[in-house]
Design a protein around this nucleic acid. Structure first.
Lengths: 150, 150
DNA sequence: TTAAACAGTACTGAATTGGTCCCATTTTAC
DNA sequence: GTAAAATGGGACCAATTCAGTACTGTTTAA
């Protein structure tokens, strides 16, 4: 089906919320669950992942909570999705130690490397800032020809 | 994890094989299973899907088999993957009749539309011809900047 | 000392995917 | 005209992955 997972989708929603609340000096998992309607255990799980990958900073203790590790304009979709789903690797041979017989002689692999990079790039140009302020997407050209308007 | 499914991967392998055998006037599921080492029932299933979507033509009967519906240079990865996995829709709101509350006011949706298109485009420029002859990928630029070399 | 927050890990149910099987239909060779 | 070899179209099961939950520990401040 080739879908971004639900958890990645949730993560984006949560981070938008955190970005908005940033002036109030951070947010807690409990607050985020309340405002986003995502179940608290799920929110907790996601915030841990995002912290693990350096997207969020956390503060423990009584007045603890989470904050963005970087500015909204420096936090992009590629990083968020990778934090939740692991490295972007559209095919097995893009990530694992492969028992793929061919390896160097493979005609298909270079194309996947390329597609993978193009995809990751498309994700990485969209930042939290774009999502919270409603900035429109940048046009993409491929071989000099504009291919993705709208 | 965000992976192309194994079946899509198999489908690409099968089609490359069919493209190669094209001079011999088509191939059968049995032959393809033998040359690719993919289990016959799986091969059969995939060929059906590819035919269903117009990627392959089939001939029934004693001397039947499969042929490409279009030339190798006109059969691309986007079409193949869509035949196996359904329309490319990275998020739910890209495909289904959505019970998504916001719909028109959503800040995120336009970005997904764009990412989706960029991804599909990256897939669609790679044809069976490229895969069988070893043609190298076309560079991609984004906002005028080259982003995916190699 | 207690309460509210994060930290870490393990587990379970549901959904998707991968793979198989069965029987019907079509066509050709004998 | 019959048998064999091919596709056509379902249904089905097992295995993996994903989503969600639970539990127990640690940190910090009131």
């Amino acid at each position: 089906m080739l879908r971004i997972s639900k958890l990645s989708d949730y993560a984006i929603v949560l981070l938008c919320e955190i970005a908005k609340a940033e002036r109030g000096e951070g947010t807690t998992a409990r607050q985020l669950a309340a405002t986003t309607q995502i179940a608290l255990p799920t929110v907790v799980k996601l915030l841990k992942m995002l912290k693990e990958d350096g997207v969020l900073l956390s503060m423990q203790g009584r007045n603890g909570g989470y904050r963005l590790a970087r500015r909204p304009s420096e936090t992009n979709l590629a990083v968020i999705i990778e934090a939740v789903e692991g490295p972007i690797a559209l095919t097995e041979c893009m990530s694992e130690e492969l028992d793929c017989q061919i390896h160097s002689k493979c005609n298909t692999r270079p194309h996947w490397v390329h597609i993978n990079a193009a995809f990751r790039q498309a994700l990485s140009v969209v930042t939290l800032n774009d999502l919270t302020t409603g900035t429109m997407p940048v046009p993409v050209t491929l071989g000099g020809v504009r291919v993705a308007a709208l």
